[in-house]
Write a protein that binds this DNA or RNA. Sequence first.
DNA 1: CCAGATTTGTTCAAATTCGAATCTCCTGCT
DNA 2: AGCAGGAGATTCGAATTTGAACAAATCTGG
Lengths: 160, 160
Amino acid sequence: MADPKWLDDEEMRAWQAFLATSALLDRRLDQQLRDEVGLSHLQYEILVQLAAAEGNAMRMTELAASLLNSKSGLTYQISQLEKSGLVHRAPCTIDVRGVYAALTDEGRKLLERAAPGHVALVRELLIDVLTREQLTAIADGLGEASRRMLPKDGIAEPVR
Amino acid sequence: MADPKWLDDEEMRAWQAFLATSALLDRRLDQQLRDEVGLSHLQYEILVQLAAAEGNAMRMTELAASLLNSKSGLTYQISQLEKSGLVHRAPCTIDVRGVYAALTDEGRKLLERAAPGHVALVRELLIDVLTREQLTAIADGLGEASRRMLPKDGIAEPVR
DNA sequence: CCAGATTTGTTCAAATTCGAATCTCCTGCT
DNA sequence: AGCAGGAGATTCGAATTTGAACAAATCTGG
């Protein structure tokens, strides 16, 4: 890995656009969610995951993995959400160590209240800005990139 | 804003790919930079900005803006970098309030040592995963999206 | 030239994030 | 059964981020 190829103009343009969009978009979404329902973007995503799960509940580790976040960070956020009454913890019957984070009715209501505005902003700031071709290119390209980075990445590379 | 259009499958695919890539990529880059040169991704970006600037120096506010970060956060990071000897502060002659953050020789050396590996990883995890068409679509699409979100966004919309 | 509005950079406390350490419990193996 | 190793979740302290409040300096219109 002596002297890796530098980025050409087009690559640089894409990279910087990606970085900028990522930073700006996240900030805006976070801001709006805080203003409208008092949730951080992460907290919102937690509620979304729970709402989509079987029985509106998930194991902590599973949830952390699906959010691409650290377990200790999730413990903290779930505690916050529990204080707010949006989520509650339940012991796992099949594994005494396990803990379920479950969406409460209040949590579901808040999520339903938050979602329309959130989706509208995602649309306004990103989705509706893109052409259909760009949208597909992003879904495909970034889909592939994220897939390759997923946990289990470097594990058991087939010998060919 | 009664009932905004929901995201269809393709839009959802793009949105989730974007979110995932953003989270995973940032973490990986941060990790590598820490391991190899002991810098966070943000600190690396600060050095990059300074290296690219006139005289290897920038005003705090200007730097914060170009990094899309808060001023107080920048103050903290510049202090850290100053402790490490990678950056130094200099008073601004034309405005007594002003402060320049300037790259030191040591900072430049570290940056030159860090850059190759960083670029290689950006390539490996993102750039080289994309086709040329996807790269262009991302540069164009996200370029437009980020442009619209830039500070000064909603200001003085021409009356037309 | 001056009062008031703005800008600059920092400071502060509170909230969040991170990873290492920890504690408890489960699983596979002998 | 019994034990080593791994998994699940939390706790802890340190590092970082945030926005509000601040002090100092600059700019603006009258």
